[in-house]
Nucleic acid binder design. Sequence first.
DNA 1: TGACTCCATGAGTAAACTTGATGATAAACG
DNA 2: CGTTTATCATCAAGTTTACTCATGGAGTCA
Lengths: 305, 305
Amino acid sequence: MLEIRHLKTLHALRESDSLVEAAERLHLTQSALSHQFKELEERMGMPLFVRKTKPVRFTSGGLRLLQLADAMLPLMRAAERDITRLVGGTAGRLHMAIECHSCFQWLMPTIDQFRDAWPEVELDLASGFAFAPLPALARGDLDLVVTSDPQEIAGLTYVPLFTYEAMLAVANQHPLASKPFIVPEDLSTEILITYPVERDRLDIFTRFLEPADVEPAHVRTSELTVMMMQLVASGRGVCGMPHWALHEYSSRGYVQAKRLGEKGLFATLYAAVRTDMLDVPYMRDFLLTAKDTSFSTLDGVSAVR
Amino acid sequence: MLEIRHLKTLHALRESDSLVEAAERLHLTQSALSHQFKELEERMGMPLFVRKTKPVRFTSGGLRLLQLADAMLPLMRAAERDITRLVGGTAGRLHMAIECHSCFQWLMPTIDQFRDAWPEVELDLASGFAFAPLPALARGDLDLVVTSDPQEIAGLTYVPLFTYEAMLAVANQHPLASKPFIVPEDLSTEILITYPVERDRLDIFTRFLEPADVEPAHVRTSELTVMMMQLVASGRGVCGMPHWALHEYSSRGYVQAKRLGEKGLFATLYAAVRTDMLDVPYMRDFLLTAKDTSFSTLDGVSAVR
DNA sequence: TGACTCCATGAGTAAACTTGATGATAAACG
DNA sequence: CGTTTATCATCAAGTTTACTCATGGAGTCA
């Protein structure tokens, strides 16, 4: 019924002052526009503009359609631009979400490096995701999700980034420091320090304490890793942390890193992307950079991949 | 390039699970959709959905276009509905603005009556207009403006509603009560009570005091006419008011209504509408009702029309 | 009045769209 | 494991649509 073409014509007509001028602007003949309006007005059942005046004047119906055009044409242009950039693959959008809080510091170098290499790509990073990020990825609201819990969703591909061991940071003189590894019950009398996020996003709860039905004596939160390390070092609590994040502190003897459970608590981080995005150059590059960064981050820290 | 039809097709394809089903939904053949997609994907330079899967899966490009469809299709439907209602003329929109503050009480009965008669018309009344209402009317953002200052704007018609005399309410025992009429200088020692609006929207300033360069001793404001009358009656100020608004009080000897200037201060109120809206049934009716109401409001109050 | 501008109209044409039939491919089924 | 069924692509043909070209009427300005 109503078509984009009509809106474009109306828009051009308002910008110019007559049908002829509007026709030129649209690279059409005046006759074409005349026909177009005739038919459109027939379909709408009302005139859309007054012809004899200069500049042209719109009727109420015409004005309403112009409102529509003003709303729709920019949307269209934006979408077409996005598609073009997507095809080109050197520009586009990369909206990320990360489920794992402690990955921030690991992801940041990757992002910085990427931003330099692909200045045309619009970067966005959301961490505190209210909604489930993987469906949002499938829906197209996101472009990449860093997760340790890959779910089988059609159209999504999971690219493994690296495997890390979650460990417990304790003060050097702490009683637990002498144990070969930590068991859940050890924490029932401890103060546990975590990032200020929901429990079900912290491996130490979901995969260590909760299966054993153990609750720490107290839980306190901190935004910054440095701050957490200070608290731990001064014996005011313990905290779970990826071994690579801990390495900087444990290798200097600032705190001790203890294994969680006899066999350790390992997790693999994946980058989830829509499968067809794997072909897009900037996406390939981001994934490669992310892997590289993770290797170098892990380098000399652990053999775990 | 990109057209509504394409968005509708994509939308239908997401709702159904295959091309055939989408085709049915759109009352088209499967072949039609196949052709349509082939061409669209060619134009876009990328596939938009994965065919072999069930339900169909969209590529990133397809998802982006679906986002666009989700934004645009509702806008279109709303616009088309508005146009239909505009043509029918028994339903539609009537967004008003009034420039003259004291017209509220006069307009309200008209609006009430109108609402009963045309329940399908979406009424909206704005008084404190930040922007100029007449250009907004011409632009299509408003549908009716009550003004006493008609400006020649192409496409607008001014329907005179009635002429009224602005008068000054003073206490019975007030010194000014004995004068045959008021001159601007009389107010230089008086407390003037006004509605709490900008000065340039009050005739007593723009057409009486300011031309004579006279400032009242003090200006205080009040929201309610009743309250203003009480203040005036108890000798705590004077106030300018349309004679019809004053009549209720002056005819009972509560206050005195004095002429402003030897010849009186008259103003005509107009309803400004876009000319083509004069044909719309509900608009005709509103204007007639408004005139009627103004006649009956004036009835027995004054012969001024 | 004549030149000019603007818009409407009719006819012709090329392109786009649709249709229905047919074929290829892949999944579902006995 | 062959058969059935469903889905999508392709083809040829008919139809519609949207444009251009050519022409004419109406209004405007010297």
